[in-house]
């Protein structure tokens, strides 16, 4: 009898979350294509690894397969920071496909200590405000909660970024500790933010990707036979597509949920968007400079991403 490899997979979503189910399905498909030589158990709600440690814990073999935000391995994946820039992402499907295409094109060395299964992510990321607003300009001077990596976006709009744990965002918004937040649409329902904000400013000028990785411990990957590796690679491509579609579906659901709570989705004019795009330019320049200082092709990565988004609206 052949030895069965048991993989433990860590996700931070709760068990009922569609993404958790999707990774469970991925596990079943892996089992099928490897004729049962590989089995996968999914551990939801970060019960296997704290979210901030998923990347390194996968490198160290505490976790066999893990998915989390690229931003949770700060400084470790410099070239791939291009994905979280405000490039004007339209939706999570587009973002997930781009992230994967970017990885395949550049095969960045920074990912060498793991096996990348696929990259994906949530988009669009917008500013939500507690008080109703009529234009992006009104964000000026407001205190906006943002993750550290997105703080420059908030600053560029003339607002003040406040960093705090995502779990505190709901309470902080409901009591007015902050005036708004920068979040992917999905958070309206996922973190119940739709209950405590009034306006979502649909300005694609700020839209960034909450980019995420799905990775596997390299030693475990290398133990697989080339046929099994190939079979898994094949379903990974399918799942990159599936999770992209699912991000989209979640966004639509979150939008419905928020609308049900009376949240206004403010559409901005083309001119307003163009002004915002201009304001975001220095952030892109800073990225290229940072990459260059590390000897990485930041300009090429940025150009690739912008071209991809233009070609695949």
């Amino acid at each position: 009898q052949e030895k069965v490899m048991k993989l433990r997979l860590s996700v931070f979503w709760p068990p009922q979350h569609p993404h958790t189910k999707l990774f469970e399905q991925w596990g079943k498909d892996v089992e099928k294509v490897t004729n049962g030589r590989v089995t996968v158990t999914v551990f939801a709600s970060s019960t296997l690894s704290p979210p901030m440690q998923v990347y390194d814990n996968t490198v160290k073999g505490i976790v066999d397969v893990g998915t989390a935000l690229l931003a949770y391995a700060p400084g470790r994946l410099p070239l791939s920071e291009v994905l979280q820039l405000p490039l004007g992402y339209r939706n999570g499907y587009q973002g997930s496909k781009l992230a994967n295409a970017y990885y395949k094109k550049f095969k960045p060395k920074e990912f060498d200590d793991v096996k990348v299964l696929f990259l994906h992510g949530a988009a669009p990321g917008f500013i939500f405000t507690k008080k109703p607003v009529k234009s992006t300009d009104e964000v000026k001077g407001l205190r906006i909660r943002a993750n550290a990596e997105n703080a420059p976006i908030v600053k560029a709009l003339g607002a003040s970024p406040v960093t705090m744990p995502v779990t505190e965002a709901y309470d902080a918004l409901s009591r007015g500790v902050v005036d708004g937040t920068l979040f992917p649409l999905e958070a309206l329902q996922g973190f119940k933010i739709g209950e405590v904000v009034k306006t979502v400013i649909e300005n694609y000028g700020v839209s960034y990707l909450t980019s995420q990785f799905a990775i596997m411990n390299k030693a475990k990957w290398n133990q697989l036979s080339p046929e099994d590796q190939k079979a898994i690679e094949k379903i990974n491509d399918e799942y990159n597509d599936k999770i992209g579609r699912q991000w989209d579906a979640l966004d639509q659901k979150a939008k419905e949920f928020a609308k049900g709570k009376g949240v206004i989705f403010l559409e901005v004019s083309k001119e307003e968007e163009a002004v915002t795009v201009e304001k975001m330019k220095p952030i892109l320049d800073d990225y290229v400079k940072m990459a260059k200082s590390k000897g990485l092709p930041g300009d090429e990565a940025l150009k690739f991403c912008l071209d991809y988004l233009k070609k695949n609206p």
Binding site: R143, S160, T163
Partner: peptide, 13 residues
Amino acid sequence: LRNFGHPITGSME
């Protein structure tokens, strides 16, 4: 400072 509109960015860190 935050209540006067000038939070210290990254104070959490």
